[in-house]
Protein backbone atom coordinates (compact mmCIF):
# COMPACT_ATOMS: atom_id res chain seq x y z
CA UNK A 1 0.00 0.00 0.00
CA UNK A 2 1.24 3.42 -0.84
CA UNK A 3 2.20 5.53 2.14
CA UNK A 4 -0.42 7.84 3.59
CA UNK A 5 2.27 10.50 3.92
CA UNK A 6 3.60 12.86 1.32
CA UNK A 7 6.42 15.19 2.26
CA UNK A 8 8.38 17.86 0.51
CA UNK A 9 11.37 19.21 2.38
CA UNK A 10 13.46 21.89 0.73
CA UNK A 11 16.69 23.31 2.07
CA UNK A 12 17.36 26.97 1.33
CA UNK A 13 20.26 28.75 3.02
CA UNK A 14 20.35 27.51 6.60
CA UNK A 15 16.62 26.78 6.76
CA UNK A 16 14.70 23.70 5.71
CA UNK A 17 11.04 24.15 4.89
CA UNK A 18 8.83 21.11 5.30
CA UNK A 19 5.39 20.57 3.85
CA UNK A 20 3.53 17.40 4.72
CA UNK A 21 0.22 16.03 3.53
CA UNK A 22 -1.30 12.97 5.18
CA UNK A 23 -4.24 10.95 3.91
CA UNK A 24 -6.56 10.43 6.85
CA UNK A 25 -10.35 10.80 7.34
CA UNK A 26 -9.96 12.91 10.53
CA UNK A 27 -13.52 11.99 11.55
CA UNK A 28 -14.58 14.30 14.37
CA UNK A 29 -17.28 12.09 15.89
CA UNK A 30 -19.89 14.80 15.32
CA UNK A 31 -20.80 13.97 11.73
CA UNK A 32 -23.59 11.58 10.77
CA UNK A 33 -23.50 9.21 7.85
CA UNK A 34 -26.24 8.82 5.22
CA UNK A 35 -28.25 6.58 7.58
CA UNK A 36 -28.18 9.22 10.32
CA UNK A 37 -25.71 7.34 12.52
CA UNK A 38 -22.78 9.16 14.07
CA UNK A 39 -19.46 8.32 12.47
CA UNK A 40 -17.15 7.52 15.42
CA UNK A 41 -14.14 9.76 15.95
CA UNK A 42 -11.07 8.68 14.00
CA UNK A 43 -8.28 11.21 13.82
CA UNK A 44 -4.51 11.58 13.99
CA UNK A 45 -3.43 12.56 17.50
CA UNK A 46 0.26 13.04 17.01
CA UNK A 47 2.55 13.63 14.07
CA UNK A 48 6.27 13.86 14.72
CA UNK A 49 9.13 14.83 12.47
CA UNK A 50 12.77 13.91 12.97
CA UNK A 51 15.79 15.24 11.14
CA UNK A 52 18.67 12.73 11.17
CA UNK A 53 17.14 11.04 14.22
CA UNK A 54 16.62 14.27 16.18
CA UNK A 55 13.06 15.52 16.76
CA UNK A 56 12.41 18.91 15.14
CA UNK A 57 8.63 19.20 15.31
CA UNK A 58 5.73 17.59 17.16
CA UNK A 59 2.11 18.20 16.22
CA UNK A 60 -0.71 17.25 18.60
CA UNK A 61 -4.00 17.25 16.76
CA UNK A 62 -7.62 17.13 17.75
CA UNK A 63 -10.50 16.18 15.47
CA UNK A 64 -10.84 19.82 14.34
CA UNK A 65 -7.91 19.39 11.98
CA UNK A 66 -9.23 19.04 8.43
CA UNK A 67 -9.50 15.77 6.55
CA UNK A 68 -6.21 14.84 4.84
CA UNK A 69 -4.18 17.17 7.10
CA UNK A 70 -1.69 19.62 5.68
CA UNK A 71 1.19 21.01 7.67
CA UNK A 72 3.97 23.47 6.94
CA UNK A 73 6.85 24.46 9.18
CA UNK A 74 10.58 25.22 8.97
CA UNK A 75 13.70 24.49 10.98
CA UNK A 76 17.28 25.67 11.03
CA UNK A 77 19.90 23.27 9.77
CA UNK A 78 19.32 20.38 7.44
CA UNK A 79 20.83 20.11 4.01
CA UNK A 80 20.04 18.35 0.78
CA UNK A 81 20.33 14.60 1.23
CA UNK A 82 19.67 14.56 4.98
CA UNK A 83 17.04 12.14 6.19
CA UNK A 84 13.69 13.37 7.42
CA UNK A 85 11.31 10.95 9.13
CA UNK A 86 7.61 11.69 9.46
CA UNK A 87 5.40 9.47 11.61
CA UNK A 88 1.86 9.64 12.95
CA UNK A 89 -0.40 7.82 15.40
CA UNK A 90 -4.19 8.07 15.44
CA UNK A 91 -6.77 7.61 18.21
CA UNK A 92 -7.33 3.97 17.19
CA UNK A 93 -3.62 3.22 17.55
CA UNK A 94 -2.90 3.02 13.82
CA UNK A 95 0.44 4.41 12.70
CA UNK A 96 2.34 5.16 9.54
CA UNK A 97 5.75 6.58 8.81
CA UNK A 98 7.82 7.76 5.92
CA UNK A 99 11.50 8.57 5.60
CA UNK A 100 12.46 10.96 2.86
CA UNK A 101 15.46 13.03 1.87
CA UNK A 102 15.71 16.80 2.05
CA UNK A 103 15.96 18.34 -1.42
Amino acid sequence: MASSIRVRATSRGDTTEVQALVQHPMDSGFVKNARGELIPPHFIQRLAIEHDGKPVFVADWGPAVSKDPYLKFAFKGGKAGDELKVSWTDNKGATDQLTTKIQ
Binding site: V56, W61, A64, K72, K76, G77
Partner: peptide
Protein backbone atom coordinates in the same frame (compact mmCIF):
# COMPACT_ATOMS: atom_id res chain seq x y z
CA UNK B 1 -16.20 24.20 17.75
CA UNK B 2 -17.53 21.48 20.11
CA UNK B 3 -14.02 21.16 21.53
CA UNK B 4 -12.03 24.37 21.54
CA UNK B 5 -8.46 23.20 21.05
CA UNK B 6 -7.73 22.33 17.43
CA UNK B 7 -3.98 21.78 17.36
CA UNK B 8 -0.93 22.19 19.57
CA UNK B 9 2.58 22.27 18.16
CA UNK B 10 5.85 21.83 20.00
CA UNK B 11 8.50 24.18 18.63
CA UNK B 12 11.81 22.51 19.45
CA UNK B 13 15.12 24.41 19.63
CA UNK B 14 16.20 25.38 16.10
CA UNK B 15 12.67 25.19 14.72
CA UNK B 16 11.15 28.38 13.33
CA UNK B 17 8.22 29.90 15.22
CA UNK B 18 5.81 29.30 12.36
CA UNK B 19 3.20 26.72 11.46
CA UNK B 20 0.54 26.49 8.78
CA UNK B 21 -2.32 24.00 8.76
CA UNK B 22 -5.97 23.57 7.79
CA UNK B 23 -8.75 23.41 10.35
CA UNK B 24 -12.47 22.71 10.54
CA UNK B 25 -14.80 25.42 11.81
Amino acid sequence: NPNTLAAAYRILPGTTAMVANRLKM
